[in-house]
Design a protein around this nucleic acid. Sequence first.
DNA 1: ATAAAAGTTAGGATATTTCCTAACTTTTAT
DNA 2: ATAAAAGTTAGGAAATATCCTAACTTTTAT
Lengths: 119, 119
Amino acid sequence: MLLLRDMSKYDSDLDLCFSALGDPTRRRILERLARGEATVSELADPHDMALPSFMEHLKKLEAAQLITSKKQGRTRICSLSPTAFVPARDWLSEQSTIWEGRLDRFDDYIQTLMEERNK
Amino acid sequence: MLLLRDMSKYDSDLDLCFSALGDPTRRRILERLARGEATVSELADPHDMALPSFMEHLKKLEAAQLITSKKQGRTRICSLSPTAFVPARDWLSEQSTIWEGRLDRFDDYIQTLMEERNK
DNA sequence: ATAAAAGTTAGGATATTTCCTAACTTTTAT
DNA sequence: ATAAAAGTTAGGAAATATCCTAACTTTTAT
């Protein structure tokens, strides 16, 4: 099964994704793009930052496959990637599920202890 | 309403949280802790890394409120924080919801498909 | 009472990240 | 044909992150 054979690719995808999400400027960009596509200047406008610095953030988002972009004439239009948050959400859900499953087992254990005591 | 008054704290919480998740060593630690609490050495064992380096990762996870720990005698026991993934999941869900709620989302999707096909 | 175990602290090397300015290319408007 | 607009590239400063070794403290086992 693929899942167990080579996690490293998925792993480095998640590295890029979560690291990209770990910066407030980049989350602002994603929040903006969730509402619709925008050009580089439109995105940069609310951010008090030199354009080349801002572009670095866009590059990271694109490397993390969180956004896509295409050039139209002299302007570049950026969009949120349709599957942007899927890998991150999946990882978080999986861990939560495991965690919650463990709590249930703990409840079972307590339950068993109580029953033993009441014999 | 608190939501609009000071996002900066929540923002920096999310910075710490997502940044912490952006490292494979730290995700391995969380995956381990989702299955139950463990001491520092138990956690460190599978990682080929000097203990002080490893401890830095634990510190980051604790600063991000993803784990908690308590000292018992000379050993420290670490646990996954019960609410560990809630803020991250909430942010991702919110963005997904906004994105999915866009009226023109489907049109965009078709547009993208067409463009892909004509390449 | 010593020694071993389990962390912790201090200090340092190297790489990456995050910002900047200046100069450049390509496209569009006058 | 020029100039302005929208990005892009190059190069560099400063801060942060990620690792290390060596030396230290506290607790437990012999």
